[in-house]
Design a protein around this nucleic acid. Structure first.
Length: 402
DNA sequence: CGAGATTCATGTGAAGTATACCTTTAGGCTTAA
DNA sequence: AAGCCTAAAGGTATACTTCACATGAATCTCGTA
């Protein structure tokens, strides 16, 4: 390649002035200084957790609400503020935030406790130790001094679904074995019905306090967007109507503010890349598609190879017979493809489980049906748009070398 | 014609296996007194 | 003799396999109207 071929591109990239001032403000992890329309919730959480500052154990708290209703934001914000106060008055408080959804981080009991120990500043191997040994590490680290530990478990429903509710039982029991320190748990769940599936004993001890976050309405989302746009974008880079459309769209989607923010950010990026001076309405539509597609593709590509081959087989089978396919067809395809790509074929039993997990990820839709004399099987449909499907097909094809 | 038996193709639970990784421990080697 | 390194022993978590049994409606069977 000729040297300097891209130089011009980079130069103009630097010179090109951005639509954004502070893109960070639109990112999900960003905690703004001002939280709008969540005053009551903020107050409740603060009231419940405040005893922390007097070295009393706060009640365990359970927070419910659909995605993008500000649960994580409010809890994190409160925790940050608490830490500031605690530090100022040198109160021994430690807050650990863990997102249980992240695969390979906290989706089993062992991994969760290991992660807790890591947060306390000690490295723990990913495998090889007995689980109760890990608990011991945890005890020792927590109990070395008098302190209060607040454990925030985000998306806790995912963890319980995968690993059972014994974890929570153990967690609530820990306190009685600690001499110096005390532990409180804050659980955050997207699933409103989650608590019903818990063992009543666990439920009562874990959710001493409960808080439900209602969805935002369109007006509220608009306010939130305005607040963030002020920080993130340069003045006058948003055409009138864009924010309104964005918030209306999000309000339709169960008041999901997270989506609205993402939509706006991606729309901004698209406009910027197209060298536009302003974000237009049409950018929103493009952004919506792109987000949808990216989200699916991203969630698929972090899966293990075997999952990809199974999914590939599903797509292939769908292409043949249109729409509905059954386990048998998929498995036949799977055997073929796994051989072609040099992977050791898994048994039908395992593939069955993988199909089930793909279903849980929302990429496919698998329903067990009985066809009478013709047996029982899963009826599988792809739950992704057509062009996403094609792109995904291509990407998987490349990544598993078929 | 209809109630009950049969059947198919796979779902599903339990238990076992393979793999990768961990700590402990004992033995051998090196080093320094 | 003390200290360090290494390899074996004994243990665990996780992903997967094997085995065995469960499912549930279309289909078959057969007694009855």
């Amino acid at each position: 390649m000729t040297k300097g071929k891209l130089n011009g591109f980079f130069e103009s990239f630097i010179k090109k002035d951005s639509l954004f001032v502070k893109k960070k403000a639109l990112q999900l992890s960003y905690t703004p200084d001002q939280i709008v329309h969540r005053d009551t919730e903020l107050n409740s959480v603060a009231t419940i957790l405040a005893p922390l500052l007097k070295m009393e154990k706060p009640s365990n708290l359970f927070v419910y609400g659909k995605t993008g209703t500000g649960k994580t934001l409010v809890v994190r914000y409160t925790c940050d503020e608490l830490m500031v106060s605690a530090k100022a008055n040198s109160i021994p408080v430690k807050i650990i935030y863990i997102n249980c959804k992240l695969k390979k981080v906290a989706d089993t009991e062992y991994r969760l406790v290991a992660q807790l120990v890591r947060e306390l500043g000690r490295d723990i191997p990913a495998t090889g130790l007995p689980t109760d040994e890990i608990y011991n590490f945890f005890f020792k680290l927590v109990d070395i001094k008098e302190q209060i530990l607040l454990i925030v478990l985000d998306e806790i429903d995912q963890l319980i679904k995968k690993a059972g509710d014994e974890i929570l039982y153990n967690m609530t029991r820990i306190n009685s074995e600690l001499k110096n320190a005390q532990i409180s748990i804050v659980g955050i769940s997207n699933d409103l019905l989650f608590a019903d599936s818990l063992d009543p004993r666990i439920k009562s001890s874990l959710s001493e306090e409960e808080l439900v976050f209602p969805p935002y309405n369109a007006l509220q989302i608009k306010d939130i967007l305005l607040e963030r746009v002020k920080e993130a974008f340069k003045k006058g880079t948003i055409k009138p109507g864009v924010i309104e459309k964005c918030s209306a769209y999000a309000a339709r989607n169960h008041g999901d503010a997270r989506r609205a923010l993402e939509l706006l950010r991606v729309a901004g990026e698209i406009a910027e890349r197209a060298n536009k001076k302003k974000v237009e309405l049409s950018d929103l539509d493009t952004a919506e598609e792109k987000i949808e597609k990216d989200k699916i593709i991203e969630s698929v590509l972090i899966q293990p190879k075997q999952f990809l081959v199974v999914l590939y087989s599903v797509i292939e089978a769908c292409a043949d017979t249109k729409e509905k396919v059954f386990t048998g067809d998929v498995y036949d395809n799977y055997i073929r493809f796994s051989k072609e790509s040099g992977l050791r074929p898994l048994t039908q039993r395992r593939v069955s489980d993988i199909i089930c997990e793909l279903d849980m990820l929302g990429i496919i839709n698998a329903k067990v049906i009985s066809k009478g004399r013709h047996g029982r099987m899963r009826e599988i449909t792809l739950s992704i748009p057509n062009d996403t499907k094609k792109k995904l097909y291509q990407i998987i094809k490349d990544s598993i070398h078929i």
